[in-house]
Design a binder for these strands. Structure first.
Lengths: 89, 89, 89, 89
DNA sequence: CAAGAATTATGAACCC
DNA sequence: GGGTTCATAATTCTTG
């Protein structure tokens, strides 16, 4: 618990730690708003892609693959093949 | 890599690890089928409710609330403290 | 509105529609409990698989693929290749 | 299939649709970078808060509550109440 | 069928 | 550093 920060003996109605807390909360909420806006922008682009005839699910997969290390991609694809063959697929 | 599991020296066309994999996959798929069946049953009940004149959306909301209400009990005391401390009380 | 069902002139403290509602809620909650239990069982199996040296993420992918129609699998894989090539990957 | 988008009659090695795809991917990846940067900033603030003696977990909880509290206001006066009363809740 | 909520899966962070 | 919980991302289901 944050007793050090807000729990005690400052002046009664929003001590210095309360102010500090408020400031932190404000900054976080501000940044989260920006984050949310960006998320909206990204969603819009996927919508655009869809309208242009791209398959959104595959597009997401593509983005995901590009984020990984090539070696890692290769490994997972190989492993999947191993499992598929083990099941005769 | 999961070479320990399927990658090597068993007999060629579905080694002991292949069998193990198959068994796991079978069990998972069996359980998922049951899960799907239950989902269907639940859906049927909502259909029944609708026929009886209940508002399905609100009914779902009710079920949701009842599910999360117990959890919120213990969340209370902590939150109360948070608010009290933030106000220097 | 579901006034026909619970809104009015039955006896005050849980009319016949109230009883009906209660029965529906009970049945739904019962089935959802079973569903949750199954989800737990499935999770356990994935844990087992992990202990046996299988890559859980790839295993999930395998299950997902088996759930799709083969034609659909083929199509998505093809499409991904098309996109990758289009980007020179 | 999204043949309209990249599958056919453009010039061979990255047709006009390939360019379109590339542009979409670039924009998405650009925005995701910004998103990631913001996530880092937020994380830093939580670190700051921790150094100042605040309980990070509770702080996150506070932020979460502040986010969802406005939404819950309008949830009030619906049929939900009717049903809850029907169950004696 | 498109938009949005809700569940489920993946990824990150924290504690031990 | 390994496992467990918590946060975010993605898919699925519902509803209009």
């Amino acid at each position: 618990m944050a007793l050090d920060a807000v729990g005690h003996t400052e002046d009664k109605t929003s001590g210095v730690a309360g102010d500090r807390l408020r400031a932190l909360v404000d900054r976080i909420e501000r940044l989260e708003e920006e984050r949310k806006a960006l998320a909206g922008d990204i969603k819009d682009i996927y919508g655009e892609a869809k309208s242009a005839g791209f398959d959104v699910k595959v597009l997401r997969q593509l983005i995901r693959i590009r984020k990984q290390e090539p070696a890692e991609v290769e490994e997972q694809e190989t492993l999947l093949d191993v499992y598929r063959h083990a099941l005769g697929m």
